[in-house]
């Protein structure tokens, strides 16, 4: 599992890595629980699940500098948890060692149904150009944070963040719709 955790993702400071394993397994459980729920859940519920995870971690004696620190770790862990699930699902479908399936070739991908693995790849490329935007997407999309919360974590104003978000989203959308235009 630790291989999966680090696959393709930029490493951060050592402390971050040390916390990461614990957070990852807790959030993996959260992600599994949510995906087994066959009813759309609100972001408030997601937040509360993530908060519960936080409390459980703190319960086990894991210490974060503060909530912001936790959210950073959690968003990364959630991203990994979901990507791992998607990879496993793909492997199960194709048999082990299968090659990646082709991306959507038409432009109209369903709005709330991104291919997580493709998204992850695109996000890695975005990180190469603009790491802050990649982190923003990680916090918003994988961490389930609101604009306001994300702004707090990243230390920016919500207004600035909204503009950043619009561009990050457009960039990823374009990358997923038409892989050739990635710059």
């Amino acid at each position: 599992m630790s291989d999966n955790i680090q696959a393709g993702l930029p490493r951060e400071e050592p402390e971050f890595d040390a916390l990461f394993g614990a957070v990852y397994s807790e959030l993996h459980a959260v992600a599994a629980a949510i995906q087994q729920r066959h009813r759309p859940i609100s972001s408030a519920q997601t937040t509360s699940l993530v908060n519960d995870a936080y409390v459980r971690l703190v319960d086990r004696g894991i210490r974060f500098q503060d909530r912001t620190h936790f959210l950073n770790v959690a968003a990364r862990a959630m991203r990994n948890a979901l990507i791992d699930r998607a990879r496993n699902a793909l492997a199960a479908k194709r048999g082990n060692g299968a090659t990646r399936i082709a991306l959507h070739d038409d432009i109209a991908i369903a709005a709330d149904e991104p291919d997580l693995l493709a998204l992850n790849d695109a996000l890695l490329q975005l990180a190469a150009i603009d790491p802050a935007k990649s982190r923003l997407v990680e916090l918003r999309y994988f961490g389930g944070l609101s604009i306001e919360e994300t702004a707090q974590v990243m230390g920016q104003s919500p207004a600035t963040l909204k503009r950043e978000w619009a561009l990050a989203r457009a960039w990823l959308y374009r990358a997923l719709s038409d892989p050739d235009t990635r710059s």
Binding site: V30, A31, I34, Q35, Q36, R37, H38, P40, I41, S42, S43, T46, M78, R79, L82, A86, I107, A108, I109, A111, D112, E113, P114, L116, V137, R140, Y141, F142, G143, G144, A166, L167, R169, A170, W171, L172, Y173, R174, S177
Partner: peptide, 19 residues
Amino acid sequence: AHDRAHGFLEKPACVATSV
């Protein structure tokens, strides 16, 4: 892409992928 991306990534990943 911005015009078309309406709703894209708006729901957090765990919600969107469960649907």
